[in-house]
């Protein structure tokens, strides 16, 4: 069985008036089914307001579905007695690096999760060391987080989650507030974790270049899943992606323009190397005719 299994999940945000009565409701997630296998790297794309962040918050029971069910590692998120187990199996990294670091020293922050779980002291230290080494921040262990760059802060936040030994990490737009260097740092770290430690990754983002290495890409729009498949499959539908106002890698866009001009290129080109290869093949074929 998959590590995350969601069935017919719907979520309504309620708007209360001054007396606490429900004034209006708006559906942020609408009848979503989601299956994630252990060890997978899954990316969820969509513009702001598409429901992707709301869905993410269901995975570690910060939000509970209005309708439907979410199972994480076999545990129903509605089951209150399992709450802390669920939060331990599905860690979460948020968008703003400043607002999720609790400790005033890097290592203290990474130890925060294990402390909450009641892990014995010696083991906390062992976990802190392992996690900081896994994200490449060990040498910064006695620094103040305020002196770090955005990308470094996010890596500390990731280490804080890794130290809880989760089976799955949900990252909710972890790169939205970073510069290009910071973005690369974070994505590289997440990919390493997935590859080396086999942690399941659920990456929520609106940057295309971050999802081309995922095992599976899910596109959300207006609370629903509108596309899913491998990156290649999803990026074959340039027209549709443009309709959802999503970015497409420039190489894919150039290939799309060339196809429109009648140049026969394969679908789903993701990088410059692939496009150059395809163009070379096209030129050779034409010369042979």
């Amino acid at each position: 069985m998959g590590i995350i299994k969601a069935r017919h999940v719907a979520f309504d945000y309620l708007r209360m008036d001054e007396e606490g009565q429900v004034e209006s409701r708006s559906r942020a997630v609408d009848d979503v089914d989601l299956d994630v296998e252990a060890g997978d790297f899954v990316a969820i794309l969509g513009h702001n307001g598409s429901g992707k962040s709301t869905l993410a918050k269901h995975i570690n029971a910060i939000l509970l579905p209005t309708e439907g069910t979410v199972f994480v590692d076999g545990k129903d998120t509605q089951d209150e007695s399992k709450l802390w187990e669920i939060r331990q199996s599905a860690g979460m990294v948020f968008q703003n690096p400043d607002n999720q670091i609790i400790g005033t020293i890097v290592d203290e922050d990474v130890g925060f999760g294990p402390e909450n779980m009641g892990v014995p002291q010696d083991e906390i230290w062992q976990r802190v060391e392992e996690s900081l080494k896994a994200v490449g921040m060990w040498e910064y262990r006695s620094h103040s987080p305020n002196k770090l760059s955005g990308g470094q802060k996010q890596r500390v936040a990731i280490a804080g989650v890794v130290a809880m030994r989760p089976k799955c990490i949900v990252l909710d737009e972890p790169t939205a507030m970073l510069d290009p260097n910071g973005r690369q740092e974070v994505i590289r770290t997440v990919r390493e974790l997935n590859r080396r430690e086999h942690v399941t990754v659920l990456l929520i983002t609106h940057y295309m270049e971050e999802v081309i290495h995922a095992d599976k890409v899910i596109v959300m729009d207006q609370g629903k899943i509108v596309m899913q498949g491998t990156p290649r499959e999803v990026f074959s539908h340039v027209g549709e992606l443009k309709r959802f106002r999503l970015d497409v890698p420039q190489a894919t866009l150039v290939a799309y323009e060339l196809q429109k001009a009648g140049i026969a290129l394969p679908d789903g080109i993701l990088s410059n190397e692939e496009l150059i290869g395809a163009l070379e093949a096209y030129r050779k074929k034409r010369q042979n005719k």
Partner: peptide, 8 residues
Amino acid sequence: TAGLDPKG
């Protein structure tokens, strides 16, 4: 454009 999605 910091922090905005592609549409924004």
